[in-house]
C-alpha cells in the first residue's frame, strides 16, 4: 500500500473573471518510507498541489488517499483528527508559535492528542537527540536561527509518527550549508522511523537528498528521476532533466 496516492487531481483558480487551470490531472504515488521531491518553476502550482494533498484546499476533481484512507470522504472533524495522527507539515516560513518555546512547539501535536506527560517526555527526548537541538529546548522562537527553527519544525512534524510529512520549500529561507543540515535531519528521520516525505522545492541541492524527484510542468507531473548512485550524480541528472524541460537558469539554486 502507498503512503500517498493521488489520482487525476485538477484545480483551478478564479481571478478577476479568468479561470487559471493550475493543476490538470496530477497522478502521484509515494511509497511507504519513500522520500520524494516535486520540482517545478515558480508559479507552476507546487504549493497548490501540496495544499490539495494535505486537505488545506479541496481539488476540483480527483482523489487523495493517505495510508489508504480517502481524504475527500472525511468530514471536517474527521479530517482534523486524521491530520493530527497521520500527517505532518513543514513550511518555508516555519510557522512556529512565537508565544511558545522550542520544546512546547514541538510537543503541540502530542498535546492536541492529549498524550500523557511521560509519553510526551519520552517522545521529545528521542526526537531532540535525533535532531541535535537538545540544548535549545527552552529557548524562545525568536532566539534561534532559521536552520534551528526548521529543525524544530521537523521535530514537531515527526513527533506523532505520522504516515507522511509534507514540506513546502522547507529550505526556502536557508543558506546552502543550513539546507544541507536540515535535509540530512530529514533523511535521518526518514531512515530511522520510516516516515515518508514529500517535499516541494525549486532547489536542486535540496531535491538531491530525496530518493526520487518529480517534475511539475503545465499542471502535470511530466517526468521523474530516481537516485541511482550518489548525490553528485543525482544532482546532474536533475539538472539535465530541468534543461530538457526548458527551465532557465532561474530555477537553479
Amino acid at each position: 500500500m502507498h503512503a500517498l496516492n493521488a489520482s487525476n487531481i485538477s484545480k483551478s483558480y478564479q481571478t478577476s473573471g479568468e479561470t487559471a487551470k493550475v493543476l490538470r490531472g496530477v497522478n502521484l504515488q509515494i511509497a511507504r518510507g519513500e522520500m520524494a521531491a516535486v520540482m517545478g518553476p515558480s508559479g507552476s502550482g507546487k504549493t497548490t498541489l501540496l495544499h490539495v494533498l494535505t486537505g488545506i484546499d479541496t481539488p476540483d476533481d480527483g482523489d487523495v488517499a493517505i495510508g489508504g484512507e480517502n481524504f475527500a470522504q472525511l468530514s471536517e472533524e474527521e479530517r482534523a483528527l486524521f491530520r493530527r495522527k497521520h500527517m505532518g507539515m513543514i513550511f518555508q516560513d516555519f510557522q512556529l508559535l512565537e508565544s511558545l518555546t522550542v520544546k512546547e512547539n514541538m510537543l503541540l501535536p502530542l498535546i492536541l492528542d492529549k498524550k500523557d506527560a511521560d509519553v510526551q517526555k519520552a517522545a521529545l527526548e528521542k526526537v531532540m537527540d535525533a535532531l541535535g537541538i537538545g540544548d535549545l529546548a527552552d529557548k524562545g522562537i525568536m532566539e534561534i536561527s532559521g536552520g534551528q527553527k526548521q529543525r524544530a519544525a521537523i521535530g514537531r512534524a515527526v513527533m506523532n509518527e505520522p504516515e507522511i510529512i509534507f514540506g513546502d520549500e522547507p529550505t526556502g529561507s536557508l543558506d546552502r550549508k543550513t539546507t544541507g543540515d536540515v535535509m540530512r535531519c530529514m533523511v535521518r528521520m526518514n531512515r530511522q522511523s520510516g516516515i515518508s516525505f514529500l517535499i516541494v522545492t525549486h532547489d536542486v541541492y535540496t531535491a538531491s537528498f530525496c530518493d526520487r524527484v518529480l517534475f511539475l510542468q503545465d499542471g502535470k507531473l511530466a517526468l521523474e528521476v530516481k537516485k541511482e548512485k550518489d548525490e553528485k550524480s543525482f544532482q546532474e541528472d536533475i539538472l539535465k532533466t530541468l534543461y530538457a524541460l526548458g527551465g532557465g537558469r532561474d530555477d537553479l539554486f
Binding site: T54, I56, E76, E77, A80, L81, F82, R83, R84, K85, M87, M89, Q95, L96, L97, S99, L108, P109, L112, D113, R156
Partner: peptide, 16 residues
Amino acid sequence: KQEYGVMFSLGMSRKE
C-alpha cells in the same frame, strides 16, 4: 489567526 492556523494544520478540529 496565525496561531489557530498552525493549530489547525497540526490537526486541531474546528470544533475544538
